[in-house]
Amino acid sequence: MTKPKVAFYWNASCGGCEETVVDLNEDILKVADAVDIVLWPVALDFKRKDVEALGDKEIAVSFINGAIRTEEQEDIVKLLRQKSGLVVAFGACAHLGGIPGLGNLWTRDTIFHRAYKETPSTENPQGTVPQEKTDIGIGELTLPEFYDTVKTLDQTIPVDYYLPGCPPPPNLVMNAVNAILKGQLPEKGAVLAPNKAQCDTCPRNETKPEKLSIAEIKRPWQIKIDPERCFLLQGLICLGPATRSGCGETCIRANMPCRGCFGPVDGVIDQGARALSVIASLLGLEGEKKMTEEDVKKLIDQIADPVGTFYRFSLPSSLLRRKRME
């Protein structure tokens, strides 16, 4: 019996999602035994033409990580969609846009200006920036178009399932692979992690009172963080209430508040808005009747970077998707 064909591909990403596959440790041998990997740029030498040579839907599953921000990335995921039975958006970048998604606060021109001209250690007296076409005399060199706007995978091709996380934890990956091999998948469009908020499974949730009020917002470096109490109680912004569970709370157990990488639970379209409204509902709750407009403004202004805090992983997937472009 032929083994199912599997592809792993990466777009605008950091490589952490490839790492997590490696972190499967011995389990990766079971995977390698059970499937035929036909594309995995970081580890194997297959080329684009090898993928082109396959028949439509000949690949059983393509796991695609990274956000879409160049023409080449869009091109190859469209090819993989054509050649794959199932496409899984692997990791926060493919799922929600991820950290590269914060590029949506800028445009290609402002990003190029910063990266190639403005940074203090850059020496670029001629102001050279990447061009799509460059004539070098003996021919023309091309580069793929660099988009102004970062897109999620499902804003580019139809996606069947989502593996959330930055990166998805190895056990979640293993569960997904096993479910695929056994044909025991939920309805299409599902996120392959439990449908409940982090607070439900958080080891600190017993210390979270019924009525919680944040009197003052603190940054993690400002206080000695108590390793047992709920972060919100300590004035730290934790996105646990607005984030899906399934990660094993690794950040919480490392004494850092949740940053929301798993995205929202089912039914929430805009994670940042949900996170913002959760935190807003807790700010200055106690004594709110005595607060003036000034007091409220001062409290809210303690949030240093609202978009970066609430939309850290999910800006491209939000309702607005990006900052206004002129």
Binding site: L105, G272, L276, I300, I303, P306, V307, L320, R324
Partner: peptide, 9 residues
């Protein structure tokens, strides 16, 4: 403040 960051007046 968040809206201003996103370019909404």
């Amino acid at each position: 403040m968040k809206l201003e960051q996103l370019g909404i007046e």
